[in-house]
Design a protein around this nucleic acid. Sequence first.
DNA 1: GACACGCACTGGAACGGTCCAAAACAGGTC
DNA 2: GACCTGTTTTGGACCGTTCCAGTGCGTGTC
Lengths: 337, 337
Amino acid sequence: MRPPTIRDVAERAGVSKSLVSLVLRGSDQVRPEKREAVLRAVRELGYRPNAAARSLSEQRTRTVGVLLHDLRNPWFVELLDGMNSLLHDNGLRMLLADARLNRRTGQDPAGSFLDLGVDGLVVVGTLPEATALGAVAERLPVVVAGAREPRLPGVDVVANDDVRGARLVTEHLIGLGHRRIAHIAGYGAVGELRRESFEATMRAHGLAEGAVVEPSDMTEEGGYRTTVRLLSRADRPTAVFAVNDIAAIGAVSAAEELGLHVPRDLSVVGYDNTSIARLRHVWLTTVDNAGHEVGRRAARCLLDRFEGRGGAGRTELAVPVLEVRGTTTGPPDVHVS
Amino acid sequence: MRPPTIRDVAERAGVSKSLVSLVLRGSDQVRPEKREAVLRAVRELGYRPNAAARSLSEQRTRTVGVLLHDLRNPWFVELLDGMNSLLHDNGLRMLLADARLNRRTGQDPAGSFLDLGVDGLVVVGTLPEATALGAVAERLPVVVAGAREPRLPGVDVVANDDVRGARLVTEHLIGLGHRRIAHIAGYGAVGELRRESFEATMRAHGLAEGAVVEPSDMTEEGGYRTTVRLLSRADRPTAVFAVNDIAAIGAVSAAEELGLHVPRDLSVVGYDNTSIARLRHVWLTTVDNAGHEVGRRAARCLLDRFEGRGGAGRTELAVPVLEVRGTTTGPPDVHVS
DNA sequence: GACACGCACTGGAACGGTCCAAAACAGGTC
DNA sequence: GACCTGTTTTGGACCGTTCCAGTGCGTGTC
């Protein structure tokens, strides 16, 4: 009644279990008729190799753990897609875990991955707390994807070029004629980089005076509240650049609630090009953070490390692209054209 | 250099590996000083039991596979949350896989779970194709959550009560005064149930004439196109009930694009109460499908089956709740009040 | 003092694979 | 027919756990 083992297959095919093992791992040192007999027995019994036994013996699981920041914010789906295709081509499977989900129940997903003996770990997004990643990184290859931290020895970081992306946004808005631009900032290295680049770009265009920065928690609620605050200032900005799409949606809502029309009265830009930004009803101007590419490169880094290549820990940046949609236009006073 | 094993711990603590095993599994047949010695050794070495070896020996993995329909549609997050808390309390971990993601690369995630030897499988949402679930269900407990199919012997189905939910929506719209109501239908058992309940409710209120049903593929694009079609009819409906939130968003966009104001000129209702529906900018009237509750109950079913309880395969329905937000109001001609 | 009985602990056989050294076989050469 | 060579096949050790059947030992009973 229990699933068949390699011994059952061997017995049925009239060979030793070693030969079955050879056939299944594609050796060419096997005579065709025996190979056929083995494959037939496999088919007839519906045999599937037991992954636990295999990994115990091989000392590897052919499995990569993926630790997600938060399943609710869907920007990582593209990234996973890119990563999965490359990993799958190399015979590896992906195991997903949501850091936030598990933190509520008090379990440590990185530790869980360690127990399972995954061959490598990919951290996607900025983790709420740096979950003792250093200790994990000493035991197995770790790659951070879609975030810029933590920077640890032997840990690769793959992300989009936040500095460049933020510059694209800022120059887009400046090019449209905006002079007073607010930035809804976020936390973590990603938040810092985008903010600094925004400020630098404004300065470079002689608009340091027109740059306003307000912090937020990178949620919709945060974007909303921050924007309400921004729009009740005397020198109200004519454009808002939010640290991510979700916060940008909050900004749009705040503007509408205060009777302002987007983009006529206020331009809004997000970051990440999530599926939400692509919804027609939202149609948010945003930055495509090259999720697919980042995912592929993260997988590449991991594969390199499996082969023993890859030293101290490099940083790879993919080129982001501005996606101009419906939430940006020139500022009110210039709009007369 | 390799991770410490139970033998290393035993040696360090000056006991046998069997005793270490006993201590770690919380036996009370161990003298306090030995227990202390073992725990100290565990701490000092940073020992973590090897899950592969354990599951090989125990013939169980303490792991549940979760097969998701599509990560892009985030309605399942609540469900996972509910499920995870209960599973975790029972010492089980969750493994996630996305059916769509994996189908692109041609791998069969259910099979992958079988190889890994998961103790049970939860299918979340309506799978694109009934991925040979029957064969899997013969080997291990399977529960379908958040969908109504496939119906297989020995497979439990846990979902919200779609009939009741659709009735809530329809009666809400009728109560607001709508007489011509369109339904953007979906596929699968869930789609059918919601459509039938919509039709039945309309009939029960003597409004069979005013009921319009158009099929869709349950995407935003589909909702958009279907609504454009609906709104160009001579007897344009005054309300649209979409099979899910995503399609509803498409409907809202279509209305806006045709110059109609939501909800003044057209009321729109979705289903699922996804995080997108809760965005202020969207603020969609929808049905909360009790994701958390469904998740908990699905976990319960699985746990029951692990204990040997649970026979032919029951169906459990959680009670959905209407969430009235900003996209519904009375029809244009009644709106004068 | 012999015996039975619990309690605390241990050795070794699983679990289902991989992998290596050695065995069996086949064919060619002298 | 003995010997060598290369291909095919096999037995058994090993991976890190759990679990079962003991072993040894202190205690209480007759």
